[in-house]
Write a protein that binds this DNA or RNA. Structure first.
Length: 585
RNA sequence: GCGCCCGUAGCUCAGUUGGAUAGAGCAGCGGUCUUCUAAACCGCAGGUCGCAGGUUCGAUUCCUGCCGGGCGCGCCA
């Protein structure tokens, strides 16, 4: 795991202390543990905490505090890095670094810019990320939106840490759902032509079906009544499918969610891949016939029971095409398959992983991210949605109301597997209570500051020309430390497939910035000092009434430099969420 | 009945894979603009981490059993 430049130095120092202790016979263990660092909960406890002494206590037969104390002694040699060591109960080593060690973080960000936060963790492994994959039988609703935002953010994060990601949408354009769509639309079409028809029992009742039927009527008039009913129904299905899929694509695009490929289920049948997949299973005796149906022996793996793949009437079940689809993914040579699924499908995880194993791959070649339901909160009340009536809140209408940025942020700020309450009023509010604006404002505020600086003729220095030792305020160091965590954070988002950590991080970073900004000045107070950028100001003193602090040209330059790096991280973070980083608000 | 997920402040949720005195945002109360954006900041209050055991130096975190909520258990997708 590539770590921050700061962490590495600290770990090296601890490791050195361990070896010294061993060399001098203070430690008896044959192998030395590799120390891990954690961030203490309280600032008084220093910059890092290390529990290595506690971990060794047992094998060394000594108390953790004792071991920690002798390590603390050795750590005094690392005075260039570690300013202060404290042993705390029950055996922590609390380390406070020399402030200047932290400055390396700022140079690192300056150098990497857009690439700060990227890494090689994935080693170029190829990942197929499948998400949304909503049936083209209706518009996308809020739940799809959450899956879309999540899949998109994951793809950005995985790419950032060195995976090669292909984003795919699986189109269920075969089978029963499409037939029902066709029947539903045809029924509405006939109604529009003044005919009295019985609506299909499990048909789609949503109002959009009537809209689609109207479009068909506008285009073809009554002419579809002249052909056979089955042919007309099929035409209706085809037209409805195309219209609905097109609008899904458009909704996604305007939600800034893109795909590299759209994979058709019908194509799997047409190309014979379904039959081939089942043939493979038969060869391996993982499929068998019973009671006139063909079964997949999924109980061989971790499923509770075997599952039908081909029914008595000869039709395939959806499982058959899903198996074929995943075999196809495997054949395409991906190192990892990731599916973002609605949590209501969790029962299918084990059988799909069983299919992966059936084809000779380890089950964790396929991983699922399950995303829970979204409920909409309006005026503090839940908006009821019912699948039955086909009336649900669409992604499009919510995005129209709150904007893409707010919608994405809200979808991403909770763990995927917990229910999400989407508070429309909060998402629309343009104030500090709204986390999206809070973070975006931090970015815009900095842009505004830099514009003012430029207008006053202040020359922005590069890291080389800045005296960073001028940064001595706790709010400044707090910002730098927070920035140093960003690369690790991005990696953990990707490793655990948990994008929600990033919105939290950004809220904290924005908070740290706003506190700093409120407490300290960056540019001189007085407009008379507009010559600030010129050498003549060196030594001149500006005065901040708020903090009663005196600051110099060096302080101004150092703060500007610090804030540029803050802005870079805000921007990089927002980019990973697919959210705009506005220059002004 | 079986399986999966969830249970943390009044509400919505975090909690760095087992660490120290459990955090944030809303909502509530009270403060802060002669300031580079107040779209901001500060303070107060708020808790039996669902309950009970277990594992160990140490548990919100891991294990077991209950209680409560959601979802799934089709030759439906």
């Amino acid at each position: 795991m590539p770590e921050g430049i700061v962490q590495t130095q600290v770990k090296d120092a601890i490791h050195h202390a361990l070896s010294m202790a061993k060399e001098q016979g203070q430690l008896t263990a044959s192998s030395l543990p590799s120390p891990t660092l954690e961030l203490p909960k309280r600032e008084e406890w220093g910059d890092f905490a290390c529990n290595v002494a506690m971990a060794m206590a047992k094998v060394e037969h000594r108390s953790p505090v004792e071991i920690a104390s002798l390590l603390a002694e050795h750590l005094k040699e690392a005075r260039t890095v570690i300013e202060h060591v404290e042993v705390a109960n029950p055996g922590f080593l609390n380390l406070t670094l020399v402030p200047s060690v932290w400055f390396a973080v700022l140079y690192d960000i300056e150098e990497k810019g857009k690439d700060y936060g990227r890494s090689e963790m994935g080693h170029g492994q190829r990942v197929l990320l499948e998400y949304v994959s909503a049936n083209p039988t209706g518009p996308l609703h809020l739940g799809h939106g959450r899956g879309a935002a999540l899949g998109d953010a994951l793809s950005r994060m995985l790419q950032a840490v060195g995976y090669e990601v292909e984003r795919e949408y699986y189109i269920n354009d075969a089978g029963r759902q499409i037939k029902l769509l066709a029947a539903s639309v045809f029924a509405r079409y006939q109604e529009l032509q003044g005919r009295c028809v019985t609506f299909p029992e499990d048909g789609y009742h949503g109002h959009y079906i009537q809209t689609v039927a109207k479009h068909i009527a506008d285009q073809f008039g009554a002419s579809l009544l002249d052909i056979s009913a089955s042919e007309a129904e099929e035409r209706c299905g085809r037209l409805a499918y195309e219209e609905l899929l097109t609008s899904i694509r458009e909704d996604l695009r305007s939600f800034r969610v893109e795909f590299d490929s759209w994979f058709s289920e019908a194509e799997l049948y047409a190309s014979g891949k379904v039959q081939q997949a089942l043939a493979t299973l038969r060869e391996r005796e993982l499929a068998f016939e019973q009671e006139g149906a063909l079964w997949f022996r999924s109980s061989q793996f971790q499923d509770d029971k075997d599952r039908v793949v081909c029914k008595q009437d000869g039709d395939y079940t959806y499982l058959a095409s899903d198996i074929a689809y995943h075999q196809d993914k495997l054949k395409r040579g991906f190192d990892r398959l990731l599916n973002v699924w609605g949590a209501d499908h969790h029962g299918y995880v084990s059988r799909m992983q069983g299919a992966v194993q059936a084809f000779g791959y380890p089950k964790d070649r396929l991983q699922m991210v399950l995303v829970q339901m979204v409920s909409l909160l309006r005026d503090g009340k839940k908006v009821e949605m019912s699948k039955r009536s086909g009336e649900f809140v669409t992604l499009q209408e919510v995005v129209k109301e709150v904007g893409v940025d707010a919608a994405r942020f809200f979808f991403l700020m909770r763990r995927a597997d917990s229910h999400l309450e989407f508070d429309v009023e909060l998402a629309k509010r343009q104030s500090t209570e709204n986390p999206v604006y809070y973070v975006q404002y931090a970015h815009a505020r900095l842009s505004s500051l830099f514009r003012t600086a430029q207008a006053r003729g202040v020359v922005m220095c590069t890291g080389r020309d800045v005296t960073l030792t001028a940064l001595t305020q706790p709010e400044e160091l707090r910002l730098i430390k927070h920035l140093s965590q960003f690369p690790d954070l991005v990696e953990s988002c990707a490793r655990f497939l948990e994008p929600h950590r990033l919105p939290f991080y950004l809220q904290e970073l924005a908070g740290n910035l706003h506190v700093f900004y409120y407490k300290h000045r960056v540019l001189p107070l007085d407009k008379e000092d507009e010559v600030a950028g010129q050498p003549s100001i060196v030594g001149a003193k500006a005065y901040s009434a708020k903090s009663r602090e005196v600051f110099s040209f060096e302080v101004m330059q150092a703060r500007l430099f610090l804030l540029q790096q803050v802005q870079t991280v805000l921007r990089n973070g927002l980019e990973l969420l697919g959210i705009r980083a506005p220059e002004q608000m």
